[in-house]
Computed example of a mutant assay.
Amino acid sequence: MTETVTISTLDGDASFSAYVARPQGTPKAAIIVIQEIFGVNPGIRGKCDKWAAEGYLAVAPDLFFRIKPGIELDPDVEAELNEAFDYFGRYNPDDGVKDIEATIHWIRQQAGVPKVGCVGYCLGGRLAYMTATRTDIDASVGYYGVMIDQMLGEIHAIARPLMLHIPTADHFVGPEAQAAMHAALDDHPRVTLHDYEGLDHGFATESGTRRDEQGAQLADGRTAAFFAEHLA
């Protein structure tokens, strides 16, 4: 079952919508699916539906609501890709983490699911990292997160398990940024990094030209095992 719910911001001054996919029966845990720069589009909703089929409550908050509610863009359409980059340039990720924290609260208090993880892509991968450093979420996964190398000063605050998927040919996260992430995080006891040789940004998208089927299945299998372990 799927529905759209309304979640209040932490300060209570605004609210935003979230796509919710519910499993049959009692959820074994909840997973927040954090959007790319393309909004809560069919690909993000599809990821929620997959998690619900695996027994999780899946929630995808509309994190661009302060700019424009209900954004849904296709990265394979050039005009929509350019529109998404404009939104990315205007977006404040500090607000995003607060909205993810509000979503965690909604899940635990309103939906009644105590164990919560998150998985994010692109911008969402960065937000998954920030969620791991700034909230009490139980487990976090980031796919091709951008600008994480600029936030490595926060690694001391990672208290719960974090997994990052890093495609080595990511044209948005270059070799120097990847090296900085490895140097800072390889020895961290709560962090796991996986490299994907020769793959590019967006390789685990649900559909479209960016998807690499073998790489996506490998990364998604690792993510599923990670959540099975840490959200049990």
Rank of each mutant, 00 (worst) to 15 (best):
D11K: 11
A30K: 02
L127K: 01
L81V: 05
A29T: 03
I37T: 03
G124D: 03
A128T: 02
V119T: 10
V113N: 02
F16V: 10
Y121L: 05
G43E: 06
Q35R: 06
D86I: 08
L73R: 15
E101A: 14
C118S: 14
E54C: 09
A60L: 10
V40G: 04
G39W: 02
I71T: 12
P69Q: 13
A52K: 00
V97A: 09
A58C: 10
A102Q: 04
I32Y: 01
Y19L: 03
L73A: 15
P69A: 15
P114Y: 05
P69F: 10
A58R: 03
A18W: 00
E36G: 12
K98F: 06
R66Q: 14
A30D: 05
E36K: 10
I31L: 13
I67F: 08
P69K: 13
I71K: 05
D62L: 07
G46C: 02
C118L: 09
I67D: 05
G112T: 09
S17M: 07
K47L: 09
I37G: 00
V119P: 00
C118F: 05
S15M: 06
I100M: 11
K28E: 06
Q24W: 03
E72R: 12
A18V: 03
P75A: 12
P42Q: 06
D62P: 10
V33C: 07
C118P: 07
P42V: 04
V113T: 07
G112H: 06
D99P: 10
H105K: 14
V116W: 00
H105W: 04
W106S: 07
D94F: 12
F85Y: 15
A60V: 08
Q24S: 13
I100S: 11
R66Y: 11
D74M: 12
G55M: 12
V119W: 00
L57K: 11
L123F: 12
D49V: 06
I100W: 04
I71P: 04
C118A: 15
D11A: 11
G120L: 04
V77M: 09
E83G: 04
V59A: 06
D95G: 01
R22T: 05
T26W: 01
D76P: 05
D11E: 12
F16A: 09
E72W: 07
R45A: 05
V97M: 08
D95T: 12
R66M: 12
P23V: 11
W106A: 06
V113W: 04
S15G: 13
A53K: 13
R90L: 12
A29G: 11
V59W: 00
E83W: 05
V59K: 00
K28L: 06
E80C: 08
